[in-house]
Design a protein around this nucleic acid. Structure first.
Length: 430
RNA sequence: UCCGCAGUAGCUCAGUGGUAGAGCAAUCGGCUGUUAACCGAUCGGUCGCAAGUUCGAAUCUUGCCUGCGGAGCCA
């Protein structure tokens, strides 16, 4: 019977066949241990010379790393295996022999591993990170579907630059200029006016020369947008969403988190409500901490965010930023025109900002003023402004960076390990 | 774009002016419970590239290239 490695527990004592690759092997004169992986998991095959005979034993000893094979044997419970089960091998059918697999079971440098990303993905650690990423995506769909959100896909090719802030990838659209999307938000606002509560999940592109552990050139964002939701409603969705995702990973990725040596006690605490501080309070706090390189009106740098986040064992919202340093579409605080109804969510343990969100301006006149103040192309934003002409309603939304979230939850240092094929500054291969 | 660090065997690194080294991988042999297995042997080099200093350069100088860490910007 053909099974996968994760199904082994249901077939104890039975003879099964598994299609697998050889991750590593160890052998002595009369016994060989084959570390097998099939994509669903890892299991150890034990080949005993006195049981299989000379021929099969020699065959087992000679299999090279990452060769593919069908392996047949009896599933046995064994607490010496970290998985809990072993395969007592009876026969091996080699599909394709691998030659000089470059990633050996020893240390490798970043450049070498990145050059071999297509193979690096096979390693236990990368396998675990990809499973966590998948669980976060699964939990995201679950969360928003359960709450009546409709998934809407905004375009990736756009004709106008949504904001002047980020560097965009330029391309041609037949005879016109076009740009790769850096955010689907404006389109999601239109979608929210049609469908009420919507969310998107897709790639975004930033042509910034950023070279840090938190930046990718191409990364994936989840962007919910909700009609009739104010600032307060927005924060509530965010904290419920983030804690749902963390609790789902804890529930469904125990094995993977263990393999990544993630301190799960820190994740257990991620439950609503999340702490909040205002921008004003954050500035005051930073001054008390001795940061004299920042004053009211400046945006926070990474060291500032980290210093603030270190006070909490949960993600923390920083709210009410100065209007001047935030995008044109954010709703000003009715009591204080100089700040906006926005919040960034900073992850604990130094992983930085994972969410940026706000209530959006729904007043037509104010939005048009802002477009002029920011010297944006009025023609290009005509459709966006028009959303306020036909039945405008208060609405809010946010964007969550998937890779930073994966990095935080899995406890990996760098976002380049959280996406299958990272696009980085100076890296487009493989 | 700026600041700092690095580039030597397939991989990870040592070698700081005088014959190019180790561990791992690979190959061969040994070992009945290995966990990056272990033990012995063999194989393995344009010392990033270019120019310069010197009797002599992996080592010192200059330029360039590549990568890493960080900043800015952002999710």
């Amino acid at each position: 019977m053909k099974i996968t490695i994760t199904e082994a527990g249901q077939h104890v004592g039975e003879e099964v066949t598994i299609g697998a690759w050889l991750a590593n092997k160890r052998s002595s004169g009369k016994i060989a241990f084959l570390q097998l992986r099939d994509g669903t998991g890892f299991i150890q095959g034990v080949v005993v010379k006195s049981e299989v005979g000379e021929e099969v034993f020699q065959q087992a000893k000679s299999i090279t790393q990452e060769s593919s094979l069908y392996i047949t044997g009896t599933v046995q419970e064994d607490n010496r295996s970290p998985f809990g089960y072993e395969l007592s091998v009876s026969s091996i059918d080699i599909i394709a022999e691998a030659e000089d697999y470059p990633i050996t079971p020893k240390e490798h440098g970043t450049e070498f591993l990145m050059d071999h990303r297509h193979l690096w993905l096979r390693s236990r650690r990368q396998h675990a990170v990809m499973k966590v990423r998948n669980e976060i995506i699964r939990a995201t769909y679950e969360f928003f579907n359960d709450r009546g959100f409709v998934k809407v896909d905004p375009p990736i090719l756009t004709g106008s630059a949504p904001e002047g802030t980020s560097e965009l990838f330029h391309t041609r659209y037949f005879d016109e200029d076009a740009y790769l999307s850096q955010s689907g938000q404006l389109y999601m606002e239109a979608a929210a006016m049609a469908l009420g509560k919507v969310f998107s999940f897709g790639p975004t592109f930033r042509a910034e020369k950023s070279k840090t552990r938190r930046h990718l050139i191409e990364f994936w964002m989840i962007e919910p947008e909700m009609a009739f939701y104010n600032f307060e409603d927005n924060l509530k969705v965010q904290e419920e969403y983030v804690s749902h995702v963390v609790q789902s990973v804890l529930a469904n990725c125990r094995l993977e988190l263990g393999r990544l040596d993630r301190d799960t006690s820190k994740l257990e605490q991620i439950k609503t409500p999340f702490p909040r501080i205002t921008y004003d309070e954050a500035i005051e706090f930073l001054h008390k901490q001795g940061f004299d390189d920042i004053k009211w009106g400046d945006d926070f740098g990474a060291p500032h965010e980290t210093a603030i986040a270190e006070n909490y064992d949960k993600p923390v919202f920083i709210t009410h930023y100065p209007t001047a340093i935030k995008p044109f579409y954010m709703q000003p605080d009715p009591n204080r025109e100089e700040v906006v109804l926005c919040a960034d969510l900073i992850a604990p343990e130094g992983y930085g900002e994972i969410i940026g969100g706000s209530e959006r301006i729904h007043d037509r006149q104010l939005l048009e003023e802002r477009i002029k103040e920011h010297k944006l192309d009025e023609e290009a934003y005509k459709w966006y402004a028009e959303l306020r002409k036909y039945g405008s309603v208060p609405h809010s939304g946010f964007g969550l960076g998937l890779e930073r979230t994966v990095a935080w939850i899995s406890g990996v240092e760098h976002v380049r390990e959280t996406i299958p094929f990272p696009r980085l500054l100076n890296r487009l291969y493989p």
